[in-house]
Amino acid sequence: MGKQIYKMTVNGQVKEVMAEPRELLIYVLREKLDLTGPHVGCETSHCGACTVEMNGMSVKSCTVFAAQADGAEITTIEGLGDPDGLHVLQEAFKEHHGLQCGYCTPGMITRAHRLLQENPNPTEVEVRMGIAGNLCRCTGYQNIVKSILAAAAQINAAKEAAE
């Protein structure tokens, strides 16, 4: 099967890409759409560096074929925050030293973003379980967990203030 045109909504914009069905979503995003935030780490769906959001789910984009993503709605790390400022999670990771080499960070934050959508007020154990699909080799997770809990508190406080 030769190349096909696949259409997906990525970070709110409709994109068309030419790809073979077997091409992996991570490479489509990185090489065809120049979204190099998500990374390739293990290639067997263990490390989560390639995590993006697809149709409201956190997925490991190294284990999704381009063809499967046809018609999907996708958010990558590039879709968080805006040109003028960082997203609350991004800010919290910076504030609490939740990253070192930065390689796992886009996948980690993208996953944390989804986690907080589903569980806006997680306990530490729930955060640890919630990011168990994302490996980090640098931080020992302690400050990542701290960052996510801080972001959750901040988001909740902002919500309360708005109500």
């Binding site: 769906s45 789910m57 956190s58 490991k60 996953r111 986690l115 919630g130 990011i131 168990a132 699909g133």
Partner: peptide, 9 residues
């Protein structure tokens, strides 16, 4: 089973 991402799929 597995981890959160794998359980979504």
């Amino acid at each position: 089973i597995a981890d959160p991402q794998v359980r979504y799929m």
